[in-house]
Design a protein around this nucleic acid. Sequence first.
DNA 1: TGAATAAAAGACTTTTTTGTCTTTTATTTT
DNA 2: AAAATAAAAGACAAAAAAGTCTTTTATTCA
Lengths: 144, 144
Amino acid sequence: MFSKACEYAIRAVLFISQKSKDGKKVGIREIAKGIDSPEHFIAKILQDLRRKGLVQSQKGPAGGFYLDKESMNYSLADVVRVVDGDSLFSGCGLGLKQCSEKKPCPLHHTFKQIRGDIYHMLESAKLGEFNKQLEKNVLFLKGE
Amino acid sequence: MFSKACEYAIRAVLFISQKSKDGKKVGIREIAKGIDSPEHFIAKILQDLRRKGLVQSQKGPAGGFYLDKESMNYSLADVVRVVDGDSLFSGCGLGLKQCSEKKPCPLHHTFKQIRGDIYHMLESAKLGEFNKQLEKNVLFLKGE
DNA sequence: TGAATAAAAGACTTTTTTGTCTTTTATTTT
DNA sequence: AAAATAAAAGACAAAAAAGTCTTTTATTCA
């Protein structure tokens, strides 16, 4: 469904969100540990997200990644779009270059529905909204 | 969503279904052209599907791939399971090794719903059911 | 039986994705 | 200003996915 990079991205962004809800910045090592991902790999992904403005960062001592007020309101759909592009939301399920209402693949109509559901779910999920549940250990960002 | 191999597999299987509904067998070259896929690549995938019994084949002159009565009633979910495994139906959307009702990722509950929808859609889509619409050019298996 | 045909099998290459390592740049603190 | 810290950047390496090419095996038909 998502690429590995995108899975890490979502987990990382939610991790940062939780940590930075009370003004804290969080380093890449702590993020990698917190979401159980390769450190340098998630670092690159976060650099992308930063360039696009989805997360903020600061170099040097006491630096790290954080989310400002505005970023808290970005959605998971925004993250997915940056990392995986929007093929999940708009591409043909069977990989046809041309697939449309007029020339649909056999799964076109059913997929339209499902992709819509996925989109709305991700669009309505704001980065900040999981903080409380994560803190309470009702939701988790890594296995085991 | 699906791997390239799986996209080709679904398209190929529906192509064969359509051709073999009146007893015809269809060669790998014709399949590759019919669904716009690399010839040797789809050949391998079909060999897998044949070993698993989802499609049938015959060597030699007038040979080719076909679907018997039983195979016509397999579903797209069966094809997906053979080619991509069942991670689409059961894996965690955020890639956690352990993700369950008791220890859910932030997307666990919403994803459960969506994956169920995908599964039911694929499970209820039998290989033979698109034949008429494909023949009438209401549905298509390649772009352009 | 021999030639032609078509799938099966296996080795191989290319591309993409994932992951690692090292160096550089910016910032803070002493 | 110097040392320490942490992100940024870029070059590599490994693994997986996608795609190609050649040889083998089975079947039919003349």
